[in-house]
Design a protein around this nucleic acid. Structure first.
Lengths: 227, 227
DNA sequence: ACCTGAACACCGTTCAAGT
DNA sequence: ACCTGAACACCGTTCAAGT
């Protein structure tokens, strides 16, 4: 009795691993598989070999669809950018829109900090999701009364803050434990202790809120028309 | 005629490579060699093999002095922290001290962005140079009249901004070139063009200055005593 | 105490050979 | 057109053997 002819794309390896047929070997499928791998094993687990394995192909097969691992990272980045919530810029007051956008942006990239060094220097050319976000944010700034020349620098400043804060969000609670050197750093140690119980006083969220408020107030003062 | 007995530490490999005797194989020597390697070849060039080579030893010899490559990165980070200029906090007005500190901090880490993901989650315990910086900055905030509880979150917010801006400083001038998608992002594209001549309009420095001013003004408002 | 040399378990990427 | 399998040139790290 002959084996049934496998459906296109349904390799033995894929059936053996119980893969759903949905995982197609194209850029979308690679992006989805990469995101799943990252969420399960982190960025250390995102290797070309692991990615190929999760798609049921040999590692070299990936290079028919992406030119390098760096391109995989760019695909992931574009997908994440499409998930950032910038909807407030078309319906909320500027301050609230910025706040909503910044929290959403930080929340997403806090779980993807290894991408930040890629994004920060990656041209937006041919990155449609990223460009869509910038367009919406720019429109929101224009509607709020910002002079055109101030808009891009303001967005760049906000993004710098958001990316830096995304790293912070992963800091351990005891990052400011001065340990045996506490005696030689009395003011710092006291300031850290004033925040609350030991080993649980890293103020990542409080700091993000405070700095964001300062930026919103300070940058908002650049508006030449009232809201 | 017998060869002269080599001085301690002067291996054949080291003489062959023309290494100065100054490069000692301990943590300080490893740090110095790592910094030189980074400045010449970048972080991609910082491998345990290259580091060992520049010190005239086998790669495995390094593990008698550091436990991992990550420890090498921590040693480099501590060294860089000692170079950040926080002197203004003991002699300038708070606003000027923050500005001087922030510019110095960003300038140094802009050339060491791969360290940022390490620093941001690295406990300060047993990092004396880092702690010395935090102590001086905390004292400056206290003297300027900040309530103790606001100080650490303010510093964390400023650092997030500085780290994010350090990435920005490495962006290519044409990072905001919307390319073929310019037509679908008219407001963004126009805002970018308003900054100046094409392909030379990335406002990293302007953005840094604007965001820093906003943070200084916004956080400065938390002071309860006049300066 | 500290170094060498060989080995190990990985990486990302290339490419001839297949279909 | 797209996949496989072998190979390449690396990584960081370990460890028995030397001195």
């Amino acid at each position: 009795m002959p084996e049934p002819t496998p459906a296109p794309g349904e390799t033995k390896a894929r059936r053996r691993a119980g893969r759903p047929m949905a995982a197609v070997l194209d850029q979308d499928g690679i992006t989805a598989a990469a995101l799943e791998l990252i969420s399960k094993k982190g960025y250390d687990g995102l290797t070309m070999a692991a990615l190929a394995r999760s798609l049921g192909v040999a590692p070299s097969a990936l290079y028919n669809h992406v030119s390098s691992k760096d391109e995989v990272l760019k695909l992931v980045e574009e997908d994440l950018m499409s998930k950032v919530d910038f909807g407030g810029f078309s319906k909320l007051a500027w301050e609230e829109a910025v706040r909503q956008w910044a929290y959403s942006y930080r929340g997403i990239f806090a779980r993807h900090t290894p991408l930040i060094s890629v994004i920060a220097v990656l041209p937006v050319t041919d990155a449609p999701q990223t460009l869509a976000m910038y367009e919406a944010v720019t429109e929101g700034f224009l509607r709020a009364g910002f002079p055109e020349k101030q808009i891009i620098p303001s967005i760049v400043a906000l993004e710098a803050y958001i990316f830096g804060a995304a790293f912070d969000a992963n800091a351990p609670a005891d990052i400011f434990d001065s340990g045996r050197l506490a005696d030689s750093t009395p003011h710092f140690t006291s300031a850290v202790r004033s925040l609350g119980p030991e080993r649980n006083n890293y103020p990542s969220d409080l700091a993000f809120s405070m700095g964001l408020d300062a930026l919103i107030t300070g940058l908002g003062a650049l508006r030449t028309q009232p809201n």
